[in-house]
Design a protein around this nucleic acid. Structure first.
Lengths: 221, 221
DNA sequence: AATGATAATTTTGCATTCAAAAATGTAAAA
DNA sequence: TTTTACATTTTTGAATGCAAAATTATCATT
């Protein structure tokens, strides 16, 4: 198994919440499960610590990182900036075909909204945001975006929404698509920022910060 | 020696250009120099690879990362976005005392400009940009900024400038300070973006991309 | 029974070791 | 002389082993 694959597998385990935020990461168990020795596992954990997904405590092992309200706020703030930038760049660089693809993804997402299928809605939602970032044509930006969104993914794409908020989010997405089709970079940046600001408020109001062993999976189930 | 210290030492070696971009990283030598074994060294190299400072080639060792023109352009683009965001936030959050500190740093930098002391000018310049990012009060943002600027630092703070460009840069810094003092977040964001855009053009025109073993240190000496 | 000291156990961090892969060197053949 | 096949050496990637640190368990004392 290649180094990057080890990192990816552990990242997935963390993002799935299989090891909940704040919990200790059991080296021995993971070694057996991934069929590797401690050396490559520890290399992967150090990389994930640099990404902010793992917290290393010298001589005390590693834990899945736990986000405070402040962390969450900060990360959303950065995410706003990155998406706004991506939106501006995407408007300059996306092809017409690319716009059509996003329009199709948007239509599919709206359909999921009509069916009130939150899981599929979130899936489509995320695909659109990621497509915009990709369309910016800046791998460095995409990389930072990926690392930031990984840390807030669970809060962002798992929070239940009130009917009002959901309707608003869909309206905002209409505006996002519209700005993109008009290639109105500044407008798109504004909408994306507002959209994420609303999502952040939602998440923080819902009390989804991960302090004190707040187990996300339980609240959702 | 602690893990973070190992990472820091190697990072410094790379940023100083002691191991030039594209050059192989001699594991054995570094081990002796830092008085550590290969295990912690390799852990550090993997972390630095995740940061983008090191390139890992499976079964072929690691090299100091080499930036193409495109990489450079992309990173400056992201840096623009991050500094613009930081500027906006800083205007909302910085204390009056914080503004005074930056004003003092600005005055010192201008003095270095008058003396045509490029090294000291760049040092002060960097301090100001970093102070603005710090004033944004967002550690997540500061972290990303640090990792992006690390990769372009040598190009950004080492490129020689024509008298015209240097004068323009100083004028822009006047405007930066002015916007900050007026707490004009939007204005500051705009100026910072333009300022960095100019710097990027400078750097790219100077041909400071690190492709094909272009040794920065030689060109500067 | 509760508390504190001490011993046993576990876990961590790193050095060492080992197998596999790549690079290098050598010699024979064209 | 050049090229190709092969052997040797070096280097990489990962498993193991070992000492130090931290955690847990045990037991004596109050």
């Amino acid at each position: 198994m290649l180094h990057e694959e080890v990192v990816g597998r552990i990242r997935a385990i963390l993002l799935d919440g299989e090891i909940p935020p704040g919990a200790r990461i059991p080296e021995r168990e993971l070694c057996e499960r991934l069929q590797i020795s401690r050396t490559p596992l520890r290399e992967a954990l150090k990389v994930l610590a640099a990404e902010g997904l793992v917290q290393l405590l010298p001589h005390r092992g590693s834990r899945a990182a736990k986000l405070t309200d402040k962390d969450m706020r900060d990360l959303f703030e950065v995410c706003q900036g990155l998406e706004a930038l991506a939106g501006e760049l995407a408007c300059e660089r996306i092809t017409d075909a690319g716009i059509d693809e996003i329009a199709a993804a948007h239509a599919a997402m709206v359909q999921h909204y009509r069916e009130r299928d939150l899981i599929q809605y979130y899936r489509g939602n995320r695909a659109i945001h990621e497509a915009i970032v990709t369309a910016a044509g800046n791998p460095a930006l995409a990389g930072l975006y990926a690392s930031v969104t990984a840390r807030i993914r669970r809060a962002r794409y798992v929070t239940p929404m009130t009917p009002q908020r959901w309707a608003l989010a869909v309206k905002e997405h209409d505006a996002i698509l519209n700005a993109l089709q008009r290639r109105d970079g500044v407008g798109l940046a504004h909408i994306l920022r507002a959209h994420l600001r609303h999502k952040r408020e939602e998440v923080l109001q819902a009390g989804f910060a991960e302090a004190e062993g707040n187990d996300l999976t339980l609240r959702i189930a």
